[in-house]
């Protein structure tokens, strides 16, 4: 069964989608079979959430909104997992780093 899902979340992490958060996000994304894409604006450009090169190149900063969409069998689970990770501040307390 195949489906699509989307959502958005505000990045609260101190320095945005920095190296450590990006490593976590891409690792998480790779665990899903669906294609997962993220963007800094609702109209895109959309980039592959499994590519750290592209995720880092977004330079998404604190307080910016991250848009997420996925297509595939586990699309819904993928979108909610990504959003959840961002909401949890990538499981790190903001420490200024």
């Amino acid at each position: 069964m195949s489906g699509t899902a989307d959502g958005s979340v505000v990045i609260t992490h101190d320095v945005g989608l920095h190296a450590r958060p990006s490593v976590k996000l891409t690792k998480l994304a790779k665990g899903f079979g669906s294609t997962i894409e993220i963007a800094g604006a609702a109209e895109g450009p959309w980039i592959d959430a499994k590519s750290i090169v592209k995720v880092m190149a977004m330079k998404a900063r604190q307080n910016s909104t991250l848009f997420v969409r996925a297509a595939g069998a586990d699309a819904e689970a993928a979108v909610s997992a990504v959003i959840d990770l961002v909401r949890r501040d990538f499981d790190e307390a903001g420490d200024g780093h």
Partner: peptide, 12 residues
């Protein structure tokens, strides 16, 4: 870990 993830990414 960051460097490794970059090296393993075909986009690089």
């Amino acid at each position: 870990a960051f460097q490794l993830a970059m090296l393993e990414d075909d986009a690089l």
